[in-house]
Design a protein around this nucleic acid. Structure first.
Length: 298
DNA sequence: ATTTAGCCGGGGCCGTTACG
DNA sequence: CGTAACGGCCCCGGCTAAAT
């Protein structure tokens, strides 16, 4: 390889090719035509003396050499991008970009609104796209730029991602206003007698971490309904004798429900921001993270 | 006589369209 | 997906002419 004539543009192309494993999509990402990227690929092949990507039935398959190159290349290019973006001063009033945030419906309801209000006021050119959090896919989504930021429990985030805690959340027990069997001084025995609604984001699960804790204490509660979203629980509970544990901020200020402290079972969790190294030094994303840190719900 | 400014023109690179 | 053919662009070398 002739390092004196090393073309750094080709490395950015290689990065896109390795991530997409498809010339057409890599070209789109690079804002080039497919043939342009194809010829760049052929130059990369000369450069590395390796086919790098071999056409297959579906897209292209990376060679061992290509896979080996992937991580160090990403690291190096991220470093370059960092140095470039961190030296640009960021003007939120002029910024024009879309930030994609992944979170659960609960967080969408609780912090989504305050984030948007804040951004609208300070950075009218920033659009926000909120999408559902898919924990198993998160790291890949962030690596390819489909997701910029996730709001979630930092402990549950892939360890390779960066995280910053935002606030601690507690669960409260909710029931309809005139529910006869709930109060602030409930015992675990009282609690497990009730009929419960739980949330299973995956869908269909009746057993949650709370049930596991109860089991170790020798109790079982009666879960009669499993839903896929936090958002409708208040309505369900208000219209029935069912009760549910929900994050306090989801129901804070509601006067049409009875809110009580649940008996002493582990009912806290942390909410944080999670992002990828590639956005670490990006001045706009940095600024957005700062804003979110400031605009927290109480 | 040497340096500098400005003007071509060739060649290479890159990206596009067209096509296999 | 890859190749071929085409065209635009830019860089650079070489030239002339003016300035020092």
């Amino acid at each position: 390889m002739d390092t004196k004539r090393l073309d750094l543009n080709l490395l950015a192309t290689l990065e896109a090719l390795l991530e997409e494993q498809n010339v057409t999509r890599a070209a789109e990402r690079l804002h080039l035509s497919q043939p342009a990227v194809s010829t760049q690929l052929s130059r990369l092949r000369d450069m590395f003396n390796d086919p790098l990507l071999i056409p297959a039935h579906r897209g292209m398959v990376p060679t061992a050499k290509a896979l080996e190159l992937r991580a160090p290349l990403r690291l190096a290019l991220d470093q370059v991008r960092d140095t470039l973006t961190s030296h640009q001063h960021f003007d939120p009033t002029q910024a024009k970009l879309t930030v994609t945030i992944a979170c659960t419906d609960y967080l969408q309801a609780v912090i989504g609104l305050s984030i948007i209000k804040d951004l609208r006021r300070q950075a009218p050119g920033i659009r926000v796209a909120i999408r559902n959090l898919e924990p198993p896919r998160l790291e890949a989504q962030m690596a390819c730029g489909d997701v910029d930021l996730a709001l979630m429990t930092p402990e549950e985030a892939p360890p390779a991602l960066r995280a910053r805690p935002l606030y601690d959340e507690v669960y409260v027990l909710i029931g309809r206003l005139d529910h006869p069997h709930i109060s602030d001084r409930m015992t675990i025995e009282d609690y497990v007698q009730l009929e419960h609604v739980v949330v299973s984001l995956r869908g269909g699960d009746f057993s949650t971490p709370v049930d596991q804790v109860l089991r170790t204490l020798g109790y079982t509660r009666n879960v009669v309904l499993s839903v896929a979203s936090f958002l409708f629980i208040p309505e369900i509970v208000a219209e029935s004798h069912l009760v549910a544990l929900v994050p306090r901020r989801l129901v804070a200020g509601r006067t049409d429900l009875k809110l009580v402290d649940p008996p002493t079972i582990s009912t806290r969790f942390t909410v944080g921001m999670v992002w990828h190294d590639r956005n670490q030094g990006h001045s706009a994303h940095r600024w957005v993270r700062e804003q979110i840190g400031h605009s927290l719900p109480n």
